[in-house]
Nucleic acid binder design. Structure first.
Length: 406
RNA sequence: GGGCAGAUGCCGGAGCGGUUAAUCGGAACAGACUGUAAAUCUGUCGCACUCAGUGCUACAAAGGUUCGAAUCCUUUUCUGCCCA
């Protein structure tokens, strides 16, 4: 079974421009493919993770990845699938984000000689001359076609600025540029990128007569049809400072029953034969699958050691032992001699946004400190408790340790 | 450039002079039930406090009319639609 068949079996392939050609290329390690990442935040998140995994799989099969960081397109903002305009980022932010991306990606992709390269489209986009560009690629784009593109449809009703309209042209130009410079012959991307990617293959064909291919990855949606990787706090990040390994683990530990198998297939590197075997498991083993999923992913992103810790912590906490070491924690300073009020403490630990919210949680019986249910919002947590690390439990499954600083 | 319509809480969307911190739906959070799942039921869902109460800040922004404005008027900003 070739890599193409494996991707297909894992449900990762959404659309392809030419199945036969693509199959041949990637199964024989002949693809030099690129995936673009827009630096819209200071960390990669779960959405990018899919793309990274795909890259890794293809790299393992002998294909050469080109990681493109959108330092230039970041100035524009991709309107695909969005109903509102992106906020404009400053050049400094864009650059800082690009740098962070690079560090995170090095965990996954081997950037050794002749293995993979990383480029930043700022290097060629920022120096473009408007008139030259127009004369160069302008004639090859049909506005009529562009307006019909799915990715602009939504925005046609809500309003689409010329700035964002040009995103497609920039992305197509990227592909064209990479094709010329690095013999890049394929592009991968999220399913929402389909029209942008097609624009690229067409531009290459029109300008050079060469064939180039595009393939999209299925977006990871949960059983409700929403993008996965979002929590109440926002995205699930790959940066341990933004989403701790424990929280990351918990996110996957808590996926819907209906989504477990899909996630195992699409996100992990567990051999398909084992996954097929798991499919046959009795329903009573569903939690085993979830634990496995969480462990595998945490291990991929944060390393085996962190995965081990997160898994141990979770096991301990949920079996009632509160002594676990690795739960998320906050260092508290400025504590008066007689202690700190539970309301302030919860805010300090980010467990509540306001005192009102904290009070509410307590009145509803949702807060526990060191295994004792808090009944009064006036409760004081003493310095002694904080010294050893007071464990606050919010709701059924949010554990947090508050430790005295110093 | 001209005409028309609109801007309400996380999102959608009511309200069109007082009884409105703002109907309703979704999301979210807590409780019950469970398997750290889903579904269901209950409660909560602007901020603060001495919290069954009180105060403050809010309906794009700024002014104004009024005893009283999210609701009326003026200007500004933004958005959609139509005409050029």
């Amino acid at each position: 079974m070739g890599i193409y068949e494996e991707l297909q079996a894992r449900g990762l392939i959404a659309q392809v421009t030419d199945e036969e050609e693509i199959r041949n290329l990637i199964n024989n390690g002949g693809a030099r493919f690129y995936i673009g990442f827009d630096p819209t935040a200071d960390s990669l998140h779960v959405g990018h993770f899919m793309a990274l995994c795909l890259m890794k799989r293809l790299q393992m099969a002998g294909n050469k990845p080109v990681v493109l960081v959108g330092g230039g397109t970041g100035y524009i903002g991709d309107p695909s699938g969005r109903t509102d305009m992106r906020t404009m980022m400053t050049p400094e932010t864009i650059q800082a984000n690009c740098d962070k991306f690079k560090v995170q990606m090095e965990r996954f992709i081997d950037f050794g000689p002749d293995k993979a390269i990383m480029v930043n489209n700022a290097d060629w986009l920022l120096g473009l001359n408007y008139i030259e560009l127009l004369r160069d690629v302008g004639p090859h784009f049909s506005v009529n076609t562009m307006l019909r593109a799915e990715c602009y449809k939504q925005r046609m009703e809500k309003g689409l600025s010329f700035l964002e309209f040009n995103y497609m042209i920039m992305q197509a130009y990227d592909f064209y540029y990479l094709h010329n410079k690095y013999k890049c012959n394929m592009q991968f991307g999220g399913d929402d990128q389909w029209s942008n990617m097609l624009a690229g293959t067409e531009l290459i064909r029109k300008k050079t007569g060469d064939d180039a291919y595009a393939m999209t990855i299925t977006l990871l949606l949960n059983s409700e049809g929403k993008k996965m990787g979002k929590t109440a706090k926002g995205a699930v990040w790959l940066d341990p400072k933004k989403t701790s390994p424990y929280e990351f683990y918990q996110y996957w530990r808590n996926v819907d029953d209906a989504d477990v198998m899909k996630c195992l297939r699409m996100l992990t590197f567990i051999p398909l034969s084992e996954i097929d075997e798991m499919e046959k498991w009795d329903d009573s083993r569903i939690n085993e699958k979830k634990a496995l999923l969480a462990y595998e992913l945490t291990s991929l992103v944060h390393g085996k050691e962190e995965a081990e810790k997160a898994s141990e912590t979770a096991k301990a906490l949920f079996s009632g032992k509160v002594s676990a070491e690795n739960m998320p924690s906050t260092e508290i300073d400025n504590v008066a001699d007689d202690g700190i009020g539970i309301l302030d403490l919860m805010i300090a630990c980010n467990l509540a946004k306001s005192k009102n919210e904290a009070r509410r949680l307590i009145l509803q019986g949702g807060v526990t400190v060191d295994e004792e249910k808090v009944t009064e919002p006036t409760l004081i947590v003493t310095k002694a408790q904080l010294q050893t690390g007071a464990v606050i439990k919010k709701g059924q499954k949010v554990f947090h340790r508050a430790i005295l600083k110093g």
